Amino acid sequence: MPQEVRAAVAVAKGAPTEIRTVLVPDPGPGEALVAVQACGVCHTDLHYREGAIGDDFPYLLGHEAAGVVEAVGPGVTDPAPGDYVVLAWRAPCGLCRSCRRGRPWYCFDSRNAAQAMTLPDGTALTAALGIGAFAEKTLVAAGQAVKVDPAARPEAAGLIGCGVMAGYGAAVHTGAVGSGDTVAVIGCGGVGNAAIAGASRAGARRVIAIDVDDGRLDAAERFGATDTVNSRGTDPIEAVRSLTGGHGADVVIDAVGRPETYRQGFYLRDLAGTLVQVGVPDPATTIELPLIDLFSRGGALKSSWYGDCLPSRDFPVLIDLYLSGKLDLDRFVTATMGLDDLERAFAAMRRGEGLRSVITL
């Protein structure tokens, strides 16, 4: 019997989200029903609301969540009812060409729930990133529900499900930051500061934070930045070069995803350095670079998909780091609010306020 829950729905492009009654089916084969306890407000949700990702409205928003498994479908043994989980938007299939090559973090056929959640009139909802967690309960593929230590408070744990994992993994996995490296991070929101934390833990000798907001730069220092650059009034390329003996950074992470920040990142690198783009760009934007510079500067230009993470491996590790005091997830949470306040959270995001608002349910 489907359950009625309250949920945040984006009904049309650019329209304010609406709190609607949503019907959540009982879990079928390979599915899990999760009672959501907290869900972070990510820029990706705003992109869905604005129609920047697709036009499959109505969308059931929310994807950065933690909660408790309430029921599982036939054949599911992991997770089990009662398990405390963080939801992942990648659940490797184990069968695609990437999984078979031993690269499940690039899975090309990631699993989602087969059944759709609907409005009472039967209208199917498109779940954001296959999750749809701005809801009291949500239906996901069992592989999307990753069991973690229940001692982690849900407001912090849920952030592992997207922004923190994306940033941390961009440094540790995609950028392969190593001991003694110099790292520059452009954009010090939730993703950027997670990249700073990851680079610091990976042994970077110098971590340079770049942003236009002094408050975010102050936060970056608390996450491990050794130097800060406010690019509103300073050329970040010259600033980074002056901090690195004129050379540039070994690894640059663009956590913004705009043409101007990508270009900055390209020239912030030392020769043969690595540029990692983890900020999600507007699909309409383009970039042009001199081909001779692409050749002569060498190195690597990489895109980081979800921090190139394997959720079943990485989520429990990051939660353990949090519980041992080595990764301060609580510092990312700058506001908590209820489901009815989602539009207020989006407005704060547009103004660049704080790192993460979290909806509690």
Rank of each mutant, 00 (worst) to 15 (best):
E4K: 11
R6T: 12
A8H: 01
A10T: 01
A10H: 00
K13R: 15
K13C: 12
G14S: 07
A15L: 00
T17E: 03
L23F: 04
V24Q: 00
V24Y: 02
V24G: 04
V24A: 07
P25T: 06
D26K: 09
E31C: 05
C42R: 12
H47P: 04
A52R: 15
I53H: 02
Y59V: 03
Y59T: 04
G62A: 03
E64N: 08
A66P: 05
A66M: 07
A66F: 03
V68P: 08
E70Q: 12
A71Y: 02
V72K: 07
G73Y: 08
G75Y: 04
G75F: 07
D78S: 11
G82V: 07
Y84T: 14
Y84H: 13
C93K: 04
C93T: 10
G94K: 11
L95K: 12
R103E: 15
C107N: 00
F108N: 03
S110H: 01
R111K: 15
N112R: 10
A114Y: 01
Q115I: 01
P120R: 08
L125D: 05
T126H: 14
A127I: 00
A127N: 13
A127S: 10
G130N: 00
A133M: 02
F134S: 05
A135F: 10
E136A: 02
K137D: 02
K137M: 09
A141V: 09
V146E: 02
V146C: 05
K147W: 08
P154D: 06
E155S: 12
E155P: 00
A156T: 08
A156I: 01
V164G: 09
M165N: 06
G167E: 13
V172N: 01
H173G: 00
T174N: 02
I186Q: 15
G187T: 11
G189C: 09
G189Y: 11
G190V: 09
I196H: 05
I196A: 06
I196E: 06
A202H: 11
G203L: 10
I208L: 11
R216Q: 09
D218S: 06
F223Q: 03
D227W: 06
T228Q: 01
V229I: 14
D235P: 02
P236A: 04
V240E: 07
L243G: 00
D250C: 05
V252T: 10
G257H: 05
R258I: 09
P259V: 08
P259L: 11
T261I: 01
G265S: 10
Y267W: 14
A272Y: 01
G273W: 06
G273R: 04
T274N: 08
T274W: 08
L275A: 03
V280P: 01
D282P: 04
P283T: 14
P283A: 14
T286R: 13
I287C: 06
I287P: 09
F295S: 11
S296F: 13
R297A: 07
G299V: 11
L301R: 14
S304Y: 08
W305D: 03
Y306V: 04
D308Y: 11
C309A: 15
D314H: 13
I319N: 05
Y322Q: 00
Y322C: 06
Y322A: 14
L323Y: 05
G325K: 05
G325C: 01
K326A: 15
R331T: 03
F332S: 04
A335V: 00
D340H: 12
D341H: 07
D341L: 05
L342S: 12
E343W: 10
F346D: 12
A347N: 09
M349Q: 15
S357P: 09
L361G: 02
